[in-house]
């Protein structure tokens, strides 16, 4: 029972924070709402019986990725002008297409709920970190390897983009 109440609270917080993250005009405020939403999702993962996914959600998404976003926002040092620009972007017309898409998704969820094919939650149980590891390296090993290759490609790409800048810097240092 407590778990159910906590689930609804966490779900509500996730949705509210996500909506606020979209509608805030100040970029750093919006990002903090993103963090709140991610933390609430971590709580949901925990309640659904996967503490490992919950912890990784905090470490990776809230702890690393959004920090980097906030970092960039700080570097850009957005002031009043960007808030005004954001506000100008949030007109009424901009809501129509996303709302329609969300409505379609909502209809799908509603259909799934009504058709009664949602028994998966009933067998929820605590999943040990070890089980996650074993699943990743047996059943899903191909996906893990592919993700690794993708990340390596991203790493090489980032290095390639940064290399020209570094080379220029070195030239400058030599001449000065």
């Amino acid at each position: 029972m407590t778990a159910l109440i906590l689930f609804y609270v966490a779900g509500f917080v996730t949705l509210a924070a996500a909506i606020l993250a979209i509608t805030r005009t100040n970029a750093s405020h919006a990002l903090i709402y993103v963090v709140v939403a991610l933390l609430a999702i971590a709580v949901i993962f925990f309640l659904l019986g996967s503490p490992f996914a919950a912890a990784l959600q905090i470490v990776v998404y809230a702890g690393a990725i959004v920090v980097l976003f906030l970092f960039v926002v700080m570097m850009l040092n957005l002031g009043k002008s960007s808030v005004d620009r954001e506000r100008a972007l949030l007109t009424r017309g901009i809501w129509t297409v996303p709302s329609l898409l969300a409505l379609v998704l909502f209809a799908v969820v509603l259909f799934a709920l009504v058709s009664g094919d949602h028994e998966a939650g009933a067998e929820a149980r605590m999943i040990e970190p070890k089980e996650v590891g074993i699943a990743l390296y047996t059943k899903y090993v191909l996906a893990v390897e592919l993700a690794g290759v993708l990340l390596l490609a991203a790493l090489v790409g980032a290095y390639h983009l940064g290399r020209r800048y570094l080379a220029d810097r070195r030239e400058e240092e030599k001449t000065s």
Binding site: S28, I32, V35, P51, F52, A54, A55, L56, I58, V59, A62, G63, A64, V67, L70, F71, V73, M74, E128, P129
Partner: peptide, 25 residues
């Protein structure tokens, strides 16, 4: 007593970054 205790420690030290970052911002 948790089987993700170590990850919890990492998660919390990751959260502490926000305090420093927001303080500076």
């Amino acid at each position: 007593e948790s089987n993700i205790a170590l990850l919890w420690f990492l998660a919390m030290s990751a959260m502490a970054v926000y305090g420093v970052l927001l303080g500076g911002l």
